[in-house]
Simulated assay, not measured.
Amino acid sequence: MMADYLLFASERYALPILQPLAQALQAAGHGVHAWFVDGAAGAALPPPVRMIGLREAVALRPRAVFSAANWVPTFVTGAKVQLFHGFNVEKRSDQRGHFRVRGLFDLYCTQGPATTAPFQALAAQAGHFAVVETGWPKLDPLFRDDGGAAAHMRAPAGTRPVVMFASTFTERLSAAPHLLDVIAAEVARGDRYWLLTLHPKCPPELFQRYRSLVGPNATFFETEQLVTAQRAADVLLADTTSVVSEFVVQRKPVVTFRNRAPKPHMLDFDDPSLLPAMLERAFAPTLELQQALTAYADAIHPYRDGRSSERVLAATEALLGGELGRLRRKPLSTWLRRLQIRQQLGYWGP
């Protein structure tokens, strides 16, 4: 049965999460519509996804709303499905971070065992949402034919190894300001090729300085090309960004600068001058490091078939079909957040 579905985003980094899901919906013959607000306003997914606004989203009466934000407009009809905008990288406490339940969603589609068990425990306690482990749609392209996109991005490197650099926007955690000079020196040396990017919320002047490194030994890419770059790179240099976890799913080495919660699968350091030595270690990983990478990848995202989007759709249908059990009513304590969402979006209708 054909139905209409709504994709919701409030930041540009949600686009690579929603695009594989849009393709799965289209392949199943459904109507796919997207409503982007705030930081994602003005962005678009490729046709035949139809970009719509607030009034159209309400009138659409979608069968489900898939959100890659930590909130969702509750006044739009349909099941509210949380897809997550990143992995749990422990930037904040569980109560304020990844495992915070805001009372807005009916279904949480978790990425792997490391997040499934905690959310199942929360669901058992709250009773107003269901949890299904599906894997993360954003990573589907990591394990599917990309039409040569990664090879094309890597082509300027020739036979050189490729390093990708990504950084969070959180000022106290960002490596970008601290590593600029040493990265510039590595780029100038030219024995490796660099793929550079920054979180869209990083300061414009930081973007300008990293873009100035572009040349025969480096390129700068945008958020929408993140998955392609992850496929193209051999090693990642980052900080406490969730890109670290995305990259590790491929079982490739990561070097982290002052990670908030360093773990055995990371090569963490705190002195910028140590970067060359850390990269050398990453390009010659020990057996112990390789085993740690595999163990962590299996815990956070064991799926390597590129079909997490299809599992999200199946879980949503199971929810709508009553197969996941009867959910309690959302708690009255969410009324203030619902009111704030209406105020934020300027909607006071039914």
Results as ranks from 00 to 15, higher is better:
Phe36His: 04
Leu320Met: 08
Glu280Leu: 05
Glu11Asp: 13
Asp4Phe: 08
Gly112Lys: 01
Phe75Gly: 00
Gly325Ile: 05
Ser212Ile: 05
Leu345His: 11
Asp4Arg: 13
Pro141Glu: 02
Tyr296Pro: 01
Gly346Asp: 15
Leu83Asp: 01
Gly349Arg: 11
Ala184Gln: 03
Ala28Glu: 04
Pro47Gly: 09
Glu323Asp: 12
Lys201Arg: 09
Glu224Leu: 06
Gln19Thr: 00
Ala24Ser: 00
Val65Glu: 09
Asn70Trp: 13
Ala28Pro: 01
Pro331Met: 15
Ala299Tyr: 07
Pro47Cys: 08
Leu83Ile: 06
Ala79Ile: 11
Leu275Cys: 06
Ala297Leu: 09
Gln291Ile: 10
Ala64Arg: 03
Thr116Ile: 10
Val249Trp: 05
Ala130Phe: 13
Leu339Ser: 14
Gln23Ser: 04
Gly78His: 02
Ala314Gly: 13
Asp239Cys: 00
Arg258Met: 06
Pro16Gln: 05
Gly42Ala: 09
Ser174Thr: 06
Asp239Glu: 02
His85Asp: 06
Ser309Cys: 08
Pro350Asn: 12
Gly322Arg: 13
Leu18Tyr: 00
Glu133Val: 11
Asp94Leu: 14
Glu246Pro: 06
Gln343Glu: 15
Val101Ser: 11
Tyr303Leu: 14
Leu236Trp: 04
Val243Ile: 08
Ala166Ser: 12
Phe84Asn: 14
Ile341Ala: 04
Asp234Tyr: 07
Leu7Pro: 00
Pro264Arg: 14
Leu7Gln: 01
Asp270Met: 03
Val81Tyr: 05
His199Arg: 10
Ala123Met: 14
Val37Pro: 07
Leu324His: 13
Thr219Arg: 10
Thr223Trp: 05
Arg100Leu: 14
Ala155Leu: 05
Leu45Arg: 03
Ala233Glu: 00
Gln26Glu: 07
Ala233Ser: 02
Arg154Glu: 11
Thr316Leu: 06
Val235Leu: 07
Val72Thr: 03
Asn70Ala: 10
Arg96Gln: 14
Leu320His: 04
Pro113Thr: 02
Gln120Cys: 10
Thr77Ala: 10
Tyr193Ser: 10
Ala24Gln: 00
Thr228Tyr: 08
Ala9His: 01
Ala27Trp: 11
Gly190Lys: 03
Thr294Gln: 15
Ser93Lys: 12
Leu279Glu: 02
Arg92Ser: 14
His301Gln: 12
Arg311Met: 14
